[in-house]
């Protein structure tokens, strides 16, 4: 029996013991111009767990997520201070290549954003730019493996040449997950991956997150607290740019230490 097929309770107990450190953040501040969006956040992302970032809109959870693969570099006014490491190496250090970093730390966005290319080409995009497959059969194998892992293969295997944008919203999002998986990342960041989807598509993505857990370290931003409770083992609650509380999901939801966390979880604000 594999680790992922254990029941939930056991999962949570194991999570309580922590896991292998994958990424660490220490004293991270993020500024947009002169406005401080993230204040002094320290957090650990572990290999075995799904980490959820929750909090009201504008609390900085997405901003913080984007520091983990340096997507904030694309915003000219953004400035990040503090230390963020991946396997102990500073990702903002001089010897870290952002291209390599993003190949290792993949990302799935809020709105499904497949490229206006065929389904096949969408998945093959990453392997091509990183030169992961030298021949057509290798690429075919990567595409199939990625689509299978994203739970999309059976639905699209007969129409790989159709445009990725012609799929339904939920399928598009799974295609984006397949695209992220295709470069064989170590960490997958998901920025509210279900907020544009209907409940059935959401359920499929959540199921997929369960299946991917363990193989990849997963960080998911969500404003849906039930979703955080369902898919994650670790939860971080952000409010006004600060990390209010971070711990095992079961503790955060049943026994929060901070009143702000408790108020948010019980729906008093946000």
């Amino acid at each position: 029996m594999t680790e992922t097929s254990l029941n939930d309770r056991a999962d949570k107990q194991q999570a309580a013991h922590g896991g292998t450190l994958k990424m660490t953040a220490r004293d991270v501040d993020v500024f947009y111009g002169t406005k401080q969006a993230i204040k002094n956040v320290s957090i650990d992302v572990t290999q075995e767990n799904v980490t959820a970032f929750i909090g009201p809109s504008g609390c900085g959870k997405s901003t913080f997520l984007r520091t983990l693969n340096r997507m904030n570099d694309t915003v000219a006014s953004a400035r990040v201070t503090g230390d963020i490491t991946l396997d102990g190496k500073d990702i903002y250090g001089a010897d870290m290549d952002v291209v390599q970093l993003r190949a290792r730390v993949g990302m799935v966005f809020q709105k499904p954003n497949p490229f206006p290319k065929s389904i096949y080409e969408n998945v093959a995009y990453g392997p091509r730019i990183h030169g992961l497959a030298s021949a057509k059969p290798d690429m075919d194998a990567i595409v199939e493996k990625s689509l299978r892992r994203a739970g999309l293969w059976e639905e699209v295997k007969d129409r790989l040449t159709d445009s990725g944008t012609a799929l339904s919203g939920g399928q598009q999002q799974r295609l984006c997950i397949a695209r992220a998986i295709a470069v064989d990342p170590e960490v997958i960041l998901m920025d509210e991956p279900c907020s544009a989807l209907d409940p059935i598509a959401t359920a499929k993505i959540e199921e997929l997150i369960h299946e991917l857990r363990g193989r990849y370290a997963i960080v998911i931003v969500t404003h849906n607290m039930q979703q955080a409770a369902r898919v994650s083992q670790k939860t971080a609650f952000f409010h006004l740019g600060t990390l209010v509380e971070y711990g095992d999901t079961s503790d955060i939801f049943t026994n929060p230490r901070q009143t702000r966390t408790k108020d948010y979880i019980t729906g008093r604000y946000g």
């Binding site: 993949g106 990302m107 966005f109 954003n113 290319k117 990453g126 695209r179 470069v183």
Partner: peptide, 24 residues
């Protein structure tokens, strides 16, 4: 989001322009 999607895959700006932005 197209640009972000490409950059997040580890594509450089010029790869993003050649392979995603200009075709689109």
């Amino acid at each position: 989001s197209m640009r972000d999607g490409s950059l997040a895959m580890g594509a450089t700006t010029s790869e993003t322009i050649r392979k995603v932005l200009v075709p689109a």
